[in-house]
Simulated assay, not measured.
Amino acid sequence: MSKELPSSFKLLTIWLLILTAVFLAAQAWQHQRERPRFTLNERELRLQRGPDGHFHWPGHLGGQETVFLVDTGATTTALPRALAERLGLRPLATLRSSTAGGVVEGYAAEVDLSLEGGLKAPRLRVVVLPTLDAPLLGMDVLGRLKFSQQAGEFTVELQR
């Protein structure tokens, strides 16, 4: 005597498998869209504007992979507090910072920063802010570079 599963259970299982496959495909597509898009050659690095309208520059902070939001309006490179805590950064001094959302309390810290394209900033003094969503690459780093921005591209001339 064979015990066969009811057809409704089989149909439900098939639909669950289809929906799972669609969900995983959508997640993979979203992840691919959010990845920083850049090209690198001997003379320059080109960042393509992301789907969120910003330029994202991959690099490392204290040895940990990090993707920075390029912010030419930020005076100083700034990190979210959660990231600074994961990196084990120690507060050097408390400070108040003027942001687009108003004045917030934070602290200064130091961290080794490196970016794709070979730029390194050892012991960079950064601002750590509690309400920041993503690491911001500010003019303290960008000001050392020769860069231009046009037509959805951020181009950095590399010093070799």
Rank of each mutant, 00 (worst) to 15 (best):
P130C: 06
V127G: 12
E4R: 15
L119F: 15
D71C: 02
T72W: 05
T131S: 12
D71N: 10
R37A: 11
F38R: 03
L158D: 08
Q30G: 00
L119R: 12
E4N: 13
F68S: 06
R81H: 08
G117S: 11
A21K: 02
S148A: 12
G62L: 03
D71V: 01
G138T: 04
E153H: 15
L145N: 01
E153F: 11
L69K: 05
E4S: 13
H60I: 00
A82Q: 14
L19K: 06
R86W: 01
P51N: 07
G62N: 13
A93I: 01
G152D: 12
V67I: 10
A25R: 07
W57V: 08
P36I: 05
A21I: 08
Q150T: 12
A78W: 03
F9S: 14
M1Q: 10
G152Q: 11
W15L: 15
L16D: 10
Q150E: 15
L142W: 02
L95P: 03
D112L: 03
T131R: 13
L19M: 11
Q48G: 01
W29M: 05
W15P: 00
S7W: 06
E44P: 00
L16C: 12
Q149S: 13
D140R: 02
T13E: 15
A108H: 13
Q150G: 13
R37F: 00
A78M: 07
V70P: 07
E116Q: 13
L119P: 00
L83I: 05
L61M: 07
V126N: 07
Q64L: 14
L124H: 05
N41Y: 05
R125H: 10
R160F: 06
P6Q: 12
D112T: 10
S2M: 07
A74D: 07
R144D: 10
P58E: 09
T94P: 08
E157N: 03
R37S: 09
E157C: 05
R86F: 01
G152T: 11
L132T: 07
G59T: 04
L87I: 03
R123Q: 15
Q149I: 10
Q30K: 11
T20W: 03
A26F: 03
T39P: 00
G59V: 07
L113W: 06
S148N: 10
L11E: 15
L11D: 14
